[in-house]
């Protein structure tokens, strides 16, 4: 536990120092929120009801697929990986601390959006803080897992960029955060449902309090966790060939 707490503390600090994380988790999402918040609410006043949810989904998707993925990828580059193995550093603890650190940073941005949106854009405030934060945590957790998978799958920066964009761009276009997903052709609507961003947006805008509304994201998270376990095992095997 002591080892894990040290790794978590250091990982969170490293992420605060990372210019990549600063840009992808903070600067771009906040800038996007400020610009798009003004645009959306002026041309489509009804978006005030979903502005907080859509901007949170945008921020978390960008932070996770582009920021967290790069940060995880750096942790496991070949030279560092070898150093970690001979130093008895647990890959699992490192991944877990990356997930927690990612969630922590993305929650900060989400909180900024929650606090600022009603003041600047007259966005509808959240009604139940606890339930809404619970939903944000589940959504962010699932999306961060996607970032971890991208980071573990990519062998180099080029692959990382391609994979991140392959998830990020469809998430923006098909999840309903930019425009109403019901306007999409059926096939794209169905593809969109497979994206964590879509399910997150549905959860954050849902007035349902049934536990079943959490189902799709929880199932996705479970699948992603299994995939991460397989990828970690693959990393260990690759090392010894």
């Amino acid at each position: 536990m002591k080892a894990f707490m040290t790794i978590l503390k250091i990982k969170t600090k490293m992420d605060f120092r990372s210019s990549d994380i600063l840009i992808t988790n903070y600067l771009v999402p906040i800038l996007f929120f400020l610009v798009m918040g003004a645009v959306f609410t002026s041309i489509m006043p009804e978006t005030k009801n979903t502005l907080i949810a859509s901007m949170i989904v945008f921020s978390t998707t960008m932070g996770a697929t582009i920021g967290v993925s790069a940060s995880v990828n750096e942790l496991f580059t070949q030279d560092i990986r070898k150093t970690l193995v001979v130093s008895k550093v647990s890959f699992l603890k490192l991944i877990f601390s990356s997930i927690l650190s990612g969630i922590f940073h993305l929650l900060i941005v989400s909180t900024i959006i929650i606090l600022v949106a009603p003041i600047l854009f007259d966005a509808t405030s959240i009604s139940n803080v606890f339930i809404f934060y619970g939903r944000i945590i589940i959504s962010t957790f699932t999306i961060v897992l996607v970032g971890v998978i991208i980071g573990l799958l990519s062998k180099n920066t080029a692959q990382l960029t391609i994979l991140a964009q392959l998830i990020f761009l469809p998430s923006m276009m098909l999840s309903g955060i930019m425009f109403d997903a019901s306007l999409l052709p059926a096939i794209l609507k169905n593809v969109g449902k497979l994206l964590p961003a879509t399910q997150s947006f549905l959860l954050l805008t849902s007035s349902d309090t049934y536990i079943a509304s959490y189902g799709p994201l929880l199932i996705m998270a479970l699948v992603f966790i299994l995939l991460i376990a397989v990828l970690l095992q693959r990393l260990k095997t690759l090392e010894r060939q």
Binding site: K2, A3, T6, I7, I10, K13, M14, R17, S18, E74, L75, T77, Q78, D79, I80, K82, T83, S87, K88, V89, S90
Partner: peptide, 21 residues
């Protein structure tokens, strides 16, 4: 080819490895 994380400090690197060991 020993390497470590770009943003880790010298002191943190020592803490990180010692705790892992």
């Amino acid at each position: 080819s020993s390497s470590l994380f770009r943003n880790i400090s010298v002191l943190e690197a020592m803490e990180f490895i010692c705790r892992s060991q």
